[in-house]
Design a protein around this nucleic acid. Structure first.
Lengths: 112, 112
DNA sequence: TCTTATGGTAAGTCATGGCTAACGGTAAGC
DNA sequence: GCTTACCGTTAGCCATGACTTACCATAAGA
């Protein structure tokens, strides 16, 4: 069932959940503690804690403790792995699409 | 429960499933018909068909019929949207991380 | 020390969604 | 025409995992 388990794959699996995407975007604005994150979301604090564990295991997030406050921030490494994965496939998609568009240069036009 | 529903968000939700990632990577190699894809995966053809519907709705895949054969190929537009989304957050992650690393320039070193 | 603020963890519930089996529908080959 | 190959859709089953409640641990403040 688990096909690949590369670093990018784990990141994509982690960001597949909408709540985790919301947490991720919250941390993109600025680092934050668990309670702060939970306060801005319609889920309980333990739920956020569990999601943060997944994000951390995926290499998307980093944790630093300050007293009992645990500050989470984005980790560029995990994001970079996803970025590289996506870039590879984006390029091959462009190649395949160009060749496809050449045969159908009439229907519509889209480039960007 | 659904927080955002941007284009990138739908793409990330779609690629959250491992089977869909496998299909996506298969199509990155070359366009293919539904049966061809299913033959290379441990799931039935209808399962692949359903996954392709999700990938198509997310703008990650394009479909062209040739007789009864339905050829699927990657769609650069959906991938491009994800790429842009990821790039934004990657940059803010780098900024936040740099500032974080400045305070902890002793523990370990990682840049790549 | 007692209290308060902060979070990670365990157990259990429940809905989401991925899967198969069965069907119907269309194009091509004979 | 009939048959075969290809595919989308539906119905239903079932496992994964997201969520809450309850609990325990630690650090800071009085």
């Amino acid at each position: 069932m688990t096909y690949h388990k590369s670093s990018a794959s784990k990141s994509l699996a982690a960001l597949g959940d909408p709540t985790r995407r919301a947490i991720f975007e919250r941390l993109a604005a600025s680092p934050a503690a668990v309670g702060e994150i939970a306060r801005g979301l319609p889920v309980s604090r333990p739920a956020v804690s569990q999601h943060l564990r997944v994000l951390k295991a995926a290499g998307l997030v980093r944790e630093t403790a300050s007293g009992t406050r645990h500050i989470y921030r984005l980790d560029p490494r995990g994001i970079g792995a996803m970025r590289a994965w996506l870039d590879r496939h984006w390029r091959s998609a462009l190649d395949g699409f160009r060749e496809f568009a050449d045969d159908h240069h009439d229907e519509e036009e889209d480039s960007r």
